[in-house]
Amino acid sequence: MNRYRNFVHICYADDSGRAGVVTFTGLLVRADGWNCLMHCWLEGRRKLATEPSWRVDKHAELHANQLTKKGAGRFCEAGCQEPACSGCTEADSPDCCGAPCCASRCCRRGYFENKFSTQVARDSAYRIMMTQLARCEALTVTTLACRTRNTAVAYDRFVNHLDQWAIETETSVLVFLDGPQGPLDVSEMAPEAAQQERAMAGRNAAPYRRTHRELELGPRRVIEDPQMMDSKYSQLIQAADLVAYGAYQYLWSAGTWPSGDKHGKPKDTVVSAYRRLEQRWLPGSDHGITWTGGA
């Protein structure tokens, strides 16, 4: 039985890559399974937020490049991720709780020593989120790797990849793509500034819209223009970013790009966590990845 047939799929997509290879990763979820995917993701966010020595802000954007790097980014509710010292008192900070805190006074909201800056914590957080995504049976993960330096070319290949998959599985796909979508709140903006930002967002999205509109109308299964969504405001675009980063690290570990003193090296912990999605990888792909030529 075709488990995809007659369902519309939502695809949350983000790009990655380097040095002559651009990748696009899509999280494909059946419309009737969207609640499951969101539940699994938010359960992961809850685990990061309630870990006593982390307390990752549930509204903080999870960006993979920062999340997986020791000390990078600012994710915690207290606004601080540094090791504690013992020098903070009420005399130092009027709103200090009196507990040990760090030099940037993370105790002002009542939290104690935060250990989220450590590499062990970052690796654990990434693994938790991959594990949570893998629990959603309605999810299919696909990455298209394209030998090109042109992101628009890679996106064109990606959309055609989605369209062919949708034709073969008798489904349809609506794409949500990471990118600026224009201001969401213009209440404090001058009309001219708001109009300029909207126009810029529209221009940035033009190559992606063109790809969709060049699909042959009759048989196409990728429907509508891409819906641009800023990752800061979308949990599942953030999920796509984390998975795209895992696919990128896997490709690096497989020799797609050089490694060593001058080039850095792939993160084995990220690759290991990415493998937890194995049951969700697109059937017939290589670790969830499909290669295509570029131009």
Rank of each mutant, 00 (worst) to 15 (best):
E216C: 05
V186D: 07
E192F: 02
G260M: 04
S253W: 10
Q227T: 12
W281D: 00
M229K: 15
P207A: 11
K267N: 14
S187R: 15
M189Y: 07
A193N: 08
A201G: 14
A273C: 08
E214W: 01
Q235H: 15
A239P: 12
K267C: 11
V186W: 00
Y233K: 11
N204K: 14
R209K: 14
L242M: 15
E188C: 06
P266N: 02
D230W: 14
Y245D: 00
K232Y: 11
I223F: 11
P266G: 02
K267L: 11
D268Y: 06
A190M: 08
D241S: 11
Q249L: 10
G218H: 12
T269W: 07
Q195T: 13
D241C: 10
A244G: 03
I237W: 04
G284N: 08
S259I: 10
Q227V: 15
T256R: 13
A244D: 02
P258W: 06
K232Q: 12
Y248F: 15
K265W: 09
L282W: 12
Q227E: 11
P283F: 02
E214C: 09
L277Q: 02
V186N: 02
P219Y: 03
K232C: 08
Q249M: 13
E192P: 00
G246R: 12
P266C: 01
A244W: 09
K265C: 04
R203L: 14
A193P: 01
R221S: 09
M200H: 13
Y250F: 15
G284F: 09
H212Q: 08
S231M: 00
R213Q: 15
A247K: 10
G246Y: 07
V270T: 03
S231R: 04
R275C: 07
